[in-house]
Lab assay of single mutants.
Amino acid sequence: VDNKFNKEQQNAFYEILHLPNLNEEQRNAFIQSLKDDPSQSANLLAEAKKLNDAQA
């Protein structure tokens, strides 16, 4: 993981990586967004979790 991520951002990265119901395309999009703007990690994680739950 890129060293410019802080602890919260790293946690978001790993959580998104391991959400079971996202397809690869969705997962990659969230990860790319996280890399583009790490400050949005909490929002991105919340969105990813919502999508993950919706696809459960």
Rank of each mutant, 00 (worst) to 15 (best):
N23P: 07
Y14I: 10
Q10S: 05
A56W: 14
D36K: 07
N43Y: 11
A29D: 13
Y14S: 11
S41H: 15
L34I: 13
E24P: 05
A42M: 14
A48R: 00
N6M: 02
E47L: 05
K7H: 13
Q55C: 09
H18K: 07
P38G: 09
K35A: 06
K7Y: 12
A46Y: 05
E47Q: 13
N28S: 13
N43P: 04
N28M: 05
K4R: 08
D53T: 09
L19C: 10
A54R: 08
Q9L: 09
E25T: 02
Q55H: 03
P20T: 15
N6H: 02
K49F: 07
D53K: 13
A46I: 15
N28G: 10
N52K: 02
Q26I: 06
A54Q: 15
F30P: 00
N52R: 02
S39C: 06
K4L: 06
D2P: 05
E24H: 08
Q9I: 04
A48G: 02
N23A: 10
K35F: 10
D53S: 11
D53Q: 03
L17K: 12
Y14K: 12
D37V: 10
Y14L: 14
A46C: 12
L44H: 14
E8L: 02
A46N: 10
S41C: 08
P20H: 08
E25L: 15
R27D: 00
K4C: 13
L22F: 03
Q40S: 09
N43D: 09
S39R: 06
Q26E: 09
A42Q: 11
N28Q: 13
P20M: 13
E15Q: 05
I16L: 14
K4S: 08
A12Q: 03
L44Y: 05
E15N: 07
E25V: 06
E8C: 01
A29N: 09
F5P: 14
N11S: 11
D2R: 00
E15C: 15
L17S: 13
K50A: 12
N11Q: 14
H18Q: 14
N6W: 03
I16A: 01
F13G: 03
N3S: 04
I31Q: 10
A54K: 04
Q55T: 07
A42R: 10
L19H: 02
S41M: 07
S39G: 12
D36I: 13
N28R: 11
D36F: 08
N43S: 09
L44Q: 11
D2T: 03
F5Q: 01
Q9T: 07
L44D: 01
S33E: 08
S39Y: 09
A29R: 06
A29M: 14
K7C: 12
N52C: 03
F13P: 01
I31V: 08
L22A: 00
Q55D: 06
A42E: 13
H18M: 06
S41R: 03
F5A: 03
Q10I: 12
N43I: 14
F30N: 00
N21M: 07
D37E: 13
E24W: 10
F30Y: 07
P20F: 05
I16D: 00
Q32R: 07
I16E: 01
F5R: 00
Y14D: 09
D53P: 02
E47C: 11
E25F: 03
P20I: 09
A29L: 03
I31H: 07
L34Y: 04
F13M: 15
K4M: 15
R27C: 04
Q10M: 10
N43C: 04
I31S: 08
Q9W: 11
K49I: 08
E8G: 04
E47H: 07
N6R: 00
N43V: 14
P38I: 06
L45T: 07
K7D: 15
D37P: 00
Q55I: 14
E8Y: 03
Y14N: 15
A12V: 14
E47Y: 05
L17D: 09
Q10N: 09
F30W: 03
D37C: 03
L19D: 01
E15V: 13
R27H: 08
E24C: 15
Q9C: 09
N11W: 10
Q32L: 06
K7T: 08
L51F: 15
A42G: 10
L19Y: 04
K50C: 12
E24Y: 06
Q26C: 07
K49W: 06
L22R: 00
N52M: 03
N21A: 14
H18G: 08
V1E: 15
K35Y: 08
N3F: 00
Q26R: 02
N3H: 08
L22D: 00
Q55K: 02
L45D: 01
L17Y: 13
V1W: 01
F5T: 03
K35L: 05
N23F: 14
K4W: 11
F13C: 09
D2I: 05
I16W: 01
R27L: 06
N43L: 12
F13K: 05
Q9D: 05
